[in-house]
């Protein structure tokens, strides 16, 4: 038997909104460690890794490891039915082919349950090697979202370059070019508004903007985003999920062949 209870149900809603357009189907793995998921987008260019640690839930019970194959659009439909303040319980019995979502209003005067059919998903689990990154940029997530949105009105790809000057986001398209430079900014009272750049080596990589815009749908989950870059390696765009874990997006670079 598997059961989790999350008082801040809106968190699960936000997680689903962040990944439902990128990934169609995924296996959610439940173990003593927590609730996790790894999946590629249909083009096999991007990879999403989600971890919600068991300690972060108000209640978490997992008698044996299970893997639940779920269509994300359908799970998102169900989670949309939860109120933002609702307490969410997810449970699955051993050997059944469905998972139940229960939503309780904070005052306990409305209780809903939804049963979602599970599916067999034959997905490849990729090993993500530990990497030392050439540059790590931490910046306000809303700023990153704004930059990706603005640049995508000009071009299809973004070149992210980290130098001593800061981090530069550049694009070019039919109408012209755009460059946005963000400098390190630690002298703010509010840490959520800081931009911090750790650079070991200068790095410049090219990525498809439409994926970056898709990742930015995770913005409501965290005030800061961490972008880790190394030459000729996938970028990692990470949103921490308050006290519980993270959602990490990996995107393969465009490379001169």
């Amino acid at each position: 038997m598997f059961e989790l209870r999350l008082e801040q149900g809106s968190l699960l809603k936000k997680v689903m909104e962040a990944i439902k357009d990128l990934v169609n189907d995924a296996n959610f793995d439940c173990s003593a460690t927590g609730f996790s998921m790894q999946a590629m987008d249909s083009s096999h260019v991007a990879l999403v890794a989600l971890l919600l640690r068991s300690e972060g839930f108000e209640h978490y019970r997992c008698d044996r490891n299970i893997s639940m194959g779920i269509n994300l659009a359908n799970m998102a439909k169900i989670l949309k039915c939860a109120g933002n303040d609702d307490i969410v319980t997810v449970k699955a019995d051993d050997g059944t082919d469905s998972v139940t979502f229960m939503f309780e209003s904070p005052t306990q005067d409305k209780i809903s349950d939804f049963e979602l059919k599970l599916m067999d998903i034959d997905s490849e689990h990729l090993g993500i090697p530990e990497a030392e990154y050439d540059a790590i940029v931490r910046m306000p997530s809303a700023e990153f979202a704004r930059i990706c949105k603005d640049l995508s009105s000009i071009g299809d790809t973004v070149v992210i370059s980290v130098t001593k000057e800061g981090v530069k986001f550049s694009t070019r398209g039919d109408i012209g070019t755009a460059n946005i430079v963000c400098r390190q900014n630690t002298s703010v009272d509010k840490p959520e508004e800081a931009t911090i750049i750790e650079m070991k080596e200068m790095v410049s990589l090219t990525f498809a903007l439409r994926y970056m815009n898709s990742f930015a749908k995770a913005t409501p989950l965290a005030s800061q985003v961490t972008i880790s870059l190394s030459s000729d390696l996938p970028v990692v765009v990470e949103y921490k999920i308050a006290e519980m874990g993270y959602i990490r997006f990996y995107l393969a670079p465009k490379i001169e062949e």
């Binding site: 260019v45 993500i128 490379i255």
Partner: peptide
């Protein structure tokens, strides 16, 4: 011209 790579080029099946 740069071409799009796939994730499997960097991360192998585990």
């Amino acid at each position: 011209l740069k071409s799009q790579t796939r994730i499997a080029r960097f991360f192998r099946a585990s």
